[in-house]
Write a protein that binds this DNA or RNA. Structure first.
Lengths: 222, 222, 222, 222
DNA sequence: GATGAATGAGGTTTCATTCAT
DNA sequence: GATGAATGAAACCTCATTCAT
């Protein structure tokens, strides 16, 4: 299945620079103001195009948002992909995953904010399913594949369901990711750990989370 | 410090029935439509009061929202409190916690949706900190207290920082909670596990997550 | 004719302290916010009475305003009266008038702001006539009486109509009064004279205006 | 310095007819109802444009008001300018000024009412200064220039400060202007002179005020 | 006399979307 | 392809006034 897109043909025909500009500006606007408060007239103006043309490219505000979101997700997924494709053992992958999460979260905060945005979005209703399906499928399949492999090699405990495994792993990583970028989660991190996330050494986070994961992954109750 | 509130004195003086009605209707509106799309004229009408009176009770839409949110949080926290106050061992508490999470999430879905709503909120700026601080402080201190006790009794591994411990534990539980109630997380759960959360036996979730947590809590690498 | 009033009988029956408090608070509110933006619920609260009682005292916001206004005008008129009743020559009265204007304007700025307020008011329509009639009649008759007396004594030039005389005199004094208290006129004074009214010596104003008036009053073209 | 304006670029691009229509309707609404009670939905409707477009032209109600005000002031100032630029002696200018004031006040009553409106305005706070500064600077500099010239030529008495001179002159003319147009001042005029301003012969006003001014301007006490 | 809860019309402002050019 | 003027519904919030107690 060709990846579904939410822009009109005209957008595809636009120059690379223009496409990138629109996405960049859109991501900036959506991630800083949130979906409801973002203004697509402003996005058009800041992208250097007319609002009329914007509507030649995207049918609705929602479509523009989803396109921006998907663009951001691609970048985020690439890093995940690079790690999960390697031949490393699962624990090594996990370590890389955590460390990369710390680094990427600071660099790509806009993308992560957009991702965070949709986890609470109420507006898409009919499409939510579709969007989530796409995003989370790509993400989960990477996890599940790696875990299943490790499972088969006997690298991890045998009494856990790989799918739940993947789910729990992502539950540990996603809030961590948000802790670096999203206001709510930032504050939550500070409340729990007593330290502002920006003043904490990434390695301490890596160390603590890795210990937690390693045991959960490997030790099996007799 | 008396708990800070975000309603006016007049609200306190209103009848119990009215207060509950307003909170109930407000929570329903906010959780189903989200903060931005919720309409306080609708909340007033459905509560059986005039909009003018609504503003005698709450200074702004935001204040009404926060009051609804706090009300919901109190209910959710009570369940948590009951478990954490017991004399059970940490692992037993964890098991109760997971099971209760499953049950409560279905019953109090509106409250949880509101909670989910603020994790992505962009509007509160100066107050976000304050609100989050209050909510997460109460929650985290319950975790941390229990964990520290277990720590001192030697019930849990000694090489993990109790604060991170608590943080990771909550990272596992909160997304689970959302998986029962919030559209995005529901779909995500289905993508990861392959099963709709409403058709899954709670005990399977309890079992899988408990194994994961138990190992993470107790097994220490030599 | 008994002086017309704009309050209900109940107000008359209220204690002196209460009456004064209401007027004081009302004048403060009206003069600082202007008629439209003044809030009579706030006036009631700050006066220590209920809004219900306020409406037992005054039928409408407008009536309260007029009563406050009249109260302020009485104070202002008293000073004028004291000067105009004396046996001084017109020029001496004029000098006292100017000097007193400077002093009083600083002391009774609230009253003057209320007076200024009505010179531009659009709301009273049917009553404007009545109110203005009362206020300006008292004021103008004091001027005209003094001028007519001086006229008869031959103290002033004979070719000017005393009524116009009074009108011009008041045209010189009223904007001066406003220059000490009302934002617009304050700035206007600064623009014309180059100096902030609060940093100018009153005597310079007295001297300049008096010279202007004296010649206008006494020198007759041959 | 280019004259500051309070409209958006879009307004400048609108057709001349539309611009004039909006200003005309706006001035009508503001001058008849006052700033607070003026309704910009009404102004939009009566101007034949949508409210949305109105906000494309002006950021706020206040900006629309100021633009209307400035437009009116320009017209008023032109008449003043024409007189003050001439080579006439100061007294001749004064005579023309008074006569023109009478005539113009009847013709441009809306503009004058708007001007009167701001002399009592409480809402603009930070901008009042700016607006007043602009309006009064233009006006006062015309007066002061003419007076200073007359001063140097020895046409007027030497013991009066030209700035105060200008201030007093304007104090005589501005209330006269308002007497033709603004309810309060109209009534005040009737109370002082005993005659309704509309039934009075302009020439009588010219004569009386001119005598007053002439003496004040030319006779110096020995 | 005194209270204050309750009303609800009405005004300013925003912004996604359309469409004539 | 490209423009941007134009729309108008809809939402938050204020406050003078009423009236039951």
């Amino acid at each position: 299945m060709a990846k579904k897109h939410y822009y009109k043909d005209a957008f595809e025909r636009a120059s690379k620079e223009r496409k990138e500009k629109i996405l960049e500006v859109g991501i900036e606007e959506f991630s800083s103001k949130g979906y409801e408060n973002a203004n697509i007239n402003v996005i058009a103006k800041n992208s250097g195009i007319s609002i009329g043309l914007m509507y030649k490219y995207f049918s609705t505000k929602e479509d523009l948002f989803i396109t921006c979101l998907n663009h951001g997700m691609e970048i985020l997924e690439q890093a995940l992909y690079d790690i999960m494709q390697s031949d490393d053992k699962l624990l090594v992958k996990a370590e890389k995953l955590i460390r990369t999460t710390c680094i990427h979260s600071k660099k790509n905060s806009h993308y992560i904010k957009m991702y965070n945005e949709i986890t609470a979005e109420k507006s898409f209703d009919k499409r939510t399913r579709e969007i989530v399906e796409q995003i989370e499928s790509r993400r989960s399949s990477m996890y599940i594949t790696s875990i299943t492999q490790a499972f088969e090699k006997g690298d991890v405990r045998s009494d856990l369901n790989p799918k739940f495994f993947a789910f729990f792993l992502d539950n540990l990583l996603t809030p961590l990711q948000f802790s670096f970028t999203c206001d709510y989660y930032k504050e939550r991190f500070r409340v729990y750990t007593g330290i502002d996330v920006n003043e904490m050494d990434d390695e301490q986070i890596v160390e603590q989370l890795l210990k937690f994961i390693e045991s959960a992954f490997t030790f099996e109750k007799k």
